[in-house]
Design a protein around this nucleic acid. Structure first.
Length: 464
DNA sequence: GTCGCAATAT
DNA sequence: TATATTGCGA
């Protein structure tokens, strides 16, 4: 058994998990229902979900349009009231069919031939009359399968010849539409075949925004920029200007800055706490009001910190390649750092360390990093590798441009070459069998994606 | 158009 | 789980 997902446009989000119920559907089929009638939405949702779904607000076609334009979500199929199409001058259909390449099914309470014809001409795949029947609604997946079966550019290549046993159309209308579809899709196929010769155009279609890998070099540039501007005045655009990295988007910088600031904040909090502890000790000393409990705990804390630092100094963190937040959690803030941080006088050096990037780090500024040749260390359950003996290789790698680096990106480095898939997910979809024909199913993001674990970057970089 | 926070995706 | 990306109100 598989699941479907109904999406409530007005809420701009997926239906709650309990609305995902077993149904005779391909996994994770994403259905967008567009209507201005809550009753109808409820009905469709109920039909698709066996009454487990609640629609909480009226869905507006304009909202659907807005959303589809932004491509915030991708759906596999759209069911829309033909009136909604008309209200938008069939713009919705154009957007969905031309841009999103997604099957659209019309529905209507009355048999408005003029509108229906208009819809068909704009590429609607089917027409359902309200009140809808479960038999009709539960078969809509066929349109998704058929659409994707012949789609050779978007998600990969499928031999049209493997399609042998088409599902039996559930209505006369469907049969008629399917004939039309076949013609259309053959035409599309031919058209797309010619496109594949044009590498530039297909590359354009497949181009996806590359995930930024914040290498040590890049991060250093970032930190330098932040320092130049001052932490408070550093805003993404200015940082990007200073960094002079045309490949990086403002958004990526903003994201990095957000993380940077969070790290800074975290450190500030720690610093404050540390400062408070110190004040407590001092005030207790001067007042001569030593509370055993408090003092012991404070002293212990202080000693722990000192011991910790000493241990670390002996141990040598050595690598300079860590994930954000790992080091500072371990080091804690020294008292002097605490004061400075509180006064906002300390440049984000501490946080710079804390934010040492995952993939490649520059040679670390901290004295902790320079001594111990031991191959790796364990700290807070985290394994750090020493690179001292491999410095040259490391440096060489640092010198490489990010585009030359081996792909440490987390799974978004390039277009997927997998065969047909119906959804936006990049995992290889599961296969199912329809009438003897193997199909690949929509992956349910929640349970089918193989989690792409963050690579142990150094382990990947260096032989252990 | 940009920012920053929160939510979401990977 | 950590981090990047996206959405959205200001």
């Amino acid at each position: 058994m598989s699941k479907i997902e109904v999406v409530d446009v007005s809420l701009n989000r997926a239906a709650p998990p309990q609305s995902r119920v077993n149904a005779n559907f391909p996994e994770g089929l994403r259905v967008l229902v567009v209507d201005d009638n809550v009753v109808c939405l409820k009905l469709v949702a109920a039909l698709l979900n066996k009454c487990h779904y609640k629609v909480t607000a009226t869905t507006k076609a304009t909202e659907a349009l807005k959303m589809l334009r932004k491509k915030k979500k991708k759906y596999d199929i759209v069911i829309t009231d033909v009136i909604m199409l008309d209200m938008n001058g069939f713009e919705l259909l154009e957007i969905i069919d031309l841009e999103m390449d997604m099957p659209v099914i019309m529905m209507s309470a009355n048999d408005n031939k003029e509108l229906v014809m208009k819809g068909v001409k704009h590429g609607a795949r089917d027409y359902l009359i309200k009140p809808l029947r479960l038999e009709e609604v539960k078969n809509i997946w066929q349109h998704v399968v058929r659409k994707n079966l012949f789609n050779t550019t978007k998600y990969g290549t499928v031999q049209a010849g493997t399609y042998q046993n088409p599902p039996i159309p559930s209505s006369k209308r469907q049969r008629e539409n399917i004939n039309e579809e076949e013609k259309e899709e053959k035409e599309e196929e031919e058209e797309e075949e010619t496109n594949t010769h044009n590498e530039e155009s297909s590359a354009k279609k497949k181009t996806k925004k590359k995930r930024v890998s914040w290498t040590g070099v890049l991060h250093n540039k970032f930190v330098d920029a932040v320092r130049q501007l001052g932490v408070d005045k550093a805003i993404p655009k200015k940082i990007l200007d200073i960094m002079n990295e045309p490949e990086i988007s403002r958004g990526s910088v903003a994201s990095h800055l957000q993380k940077y600031r969070n790290a800074l904040r975290k450190e500030n909090t720690k610093a404050k706490m540390s400062q408070e502890s110190e004040n407590n000790i001092n005030s207790n000393k001067t007042n001569g009001l030593l509370s055993n409990t408090i003092t012991t705990s404070c002293i212990n804390q202080g000693l722990n910190t000192i011991n910790h630092h000493n241990r670390l100094a002996e141990q040598d963190m050595s690598t300079g390649i860590t994930s954000f937040g790992s080091q500072l959690q371990t080091f804690g803030a020294s008292t002097s750092n605490a004061k400075l941080l509180q006064q906002n006088q300390l440049p984000p050096k501490v946080v710079e360390d804390q934010m040492r990037p995952t993939v490649l780090g520059s040679v670390p500024p901290s004295p902790f990093f320079a001594t111990n040749p031991s191959p790796h260390h364990e700290l807070n359950g985290m394994r750090f590798h020493s690179i001292n003996s491999r410095t040259k290789m490391f440096d060489d790698n640092v010198k490489m441009s990010s585009s030359q680096l081996p792909s440490f990106n987390t799974g978004q480095s390039g277009p997927s070459n997998m065969p047909v898939s119906f959804g936006p997910y990049s995992c290889p979809p599961a296969t199912f069998n329809l009438g003897g024909v193997p199909f690949q199913m929509l992956g349910d993001a929640s349970n089918q994606l193989n989690p792409i674990s963050q690579p142990d970057s150094l382990a990947m970089l260096l032989p252990c």
